[in-house]
């Protein structure tokens, strides 16, 4: 349905997209997830032919967006981040205008009425767009994207700035779209993606860091869980002690304001199915360090996402650190000689 291969986009020196490739199957809802500025909107703008990429190809139902833009665009309905509405038009005249520029060969009145009914804007059809609330504006934008029943519907953060009730309504609308359309949908809210999408594409700093179903992503980290423990004792000693327990992958001292001297909260990332709570207790009791509190948690999609995004930036920063260290060492060597 949608094939994206090796997209790269530069804005001057800034690399907005770095070799992004993915594909979407018919009838699938693909969630596009990433922090602000990750390249979600840029990708969508390239998919719809609004921007050009520096390299790479986009094919919509086999039509290349660069070589056959008209063919490709006929099959796309696009709702950009800011709905492209003309404030001085009425809802119905706006939709008629969209109908006209999309050169659709359906029955005009019937089709527009059907779409207005589906998106719940029939009762505002005669009103000027500038007088509508944000939720209605968003729906008019969505209605515009759906005109002509395009095979692929691309929605860029459709729920931003709406109130919780409207968010749920829009989400339900998007779920309904699945029956007729293939949907690509971007968001920086995880629960939204989790509830709406079949598959998630996590993008950070212009690179895809994960591409999997929501279930698989959770499974990936299901073997891992985290424990939070409040332990009394010298910080360094406790960290070493905790690391010596089998199954503990990483220990983090949480930055809580200390209430008592030498009492810290530690976060333990644990791998494998083994329950380490007993080991933890016996290890601490051997050295007479009291365990004051213990709490376990599974990773939510939220944490998976943060981990993916963090890992990505950590790689870069650790590279930099190594470089800096090297330089320092060289400088020291020079000074001492």
């Amino acid at each position: 349905m949608v094939e994206v291969d090796g997209l790269t986009k530069r804005y001057g020196d800034h690399l907005a997209l770095n070799n992004v490739s993915f594909s979407v199957k018919e009838g699938e809802i693909l969630g596009f997830l990433g922090p602000n500025g990750a390249g979600k909107s840029t990708t969508m703008n390239i998919l719809t032919g609004y921007l050009s990429s520096n390299s790479g190809t986009v094919k919509i139902l086999g039509f290349d967006i660069m070589e056959n833009p008209i063919g490709a665009k006929k099959n796309i309905g696009y709702l950009p981040e800011v709905p492209p509405l003309y404030p001085e038009m009425t809802v119905i005249s706006y939709l008629k205008f969209i109908f006209g520029i999309k050169k659709i060969k359906l029955k005009k009145e019937e089709h527009i009425t059907e779409i207005m009914a589906n998106t719940g804007i029939l009762e505002v059809s005669g009103r000027l767009i500038k007088n509508l609330s944000k939720g209605y504006k968003q729906r008019v934008g969505l209605a515009g994207a759906l005109i002509g029943d395009p095979k692929v519907v691309i929605l860029d953060e459709p729920t931003v700035g709406l109130d919780p009730k409207q968010i749920i309504e829009i989400r339900n609308l998007i779920k309904d779209l699945k029956k007729k359309h293939t949907v690509i949908f971007s968001s920086h809210i995880l629960s939204e993606v989790q509830s709406v999408c079949d598959r998630v594409l996590v993008i950070n700093k212009g690179k895809i860091v994960a591409n999997d179903t929501t279930n698989n992503l959770s499974k990936q980290l299901k073997n891992k869980y985290a424990l939070r423990a409040i332990i009394e004792g010298k910080e360094e000693f406790i960290v070493d002690l905790l690391k010596s327990i089998e199954g503990v992958e990483c220990v983090e001292v949480l930055d809580n304001s200390k209430t008592q001297k030498d009492v810290n909260e530690y976060k333990l990332d644990v791998s494998g199915q083994k329950d380490i709570r007993r080991d933890l207790f016996f290890t601490l009791s051997k050295t007479s360090n009291p365990l004051l509190g213990l709490e376990s948690s599974n990773f939510s999609l939220e944490e998976i996402f943060l981990k993916l995004v963090e890992n990505d930036s950590k790689d870069e920063t650790s590279d930099k650190k190594i470089e800096n260290n090297k330089k320092e060492n060289e400088d020291l060597a020079r000074i001492s000689s």
Partner: peptide
């Protein structure tokens, strides 16, 4: 300015 050009440039028109 109002980003309405997105609707024109992503529509199947030259």
């Amino acid at each position: 300015n109002k980003k309405t050009d997105q609707v024109l440039l992503t529509a199947p028109v030259k």
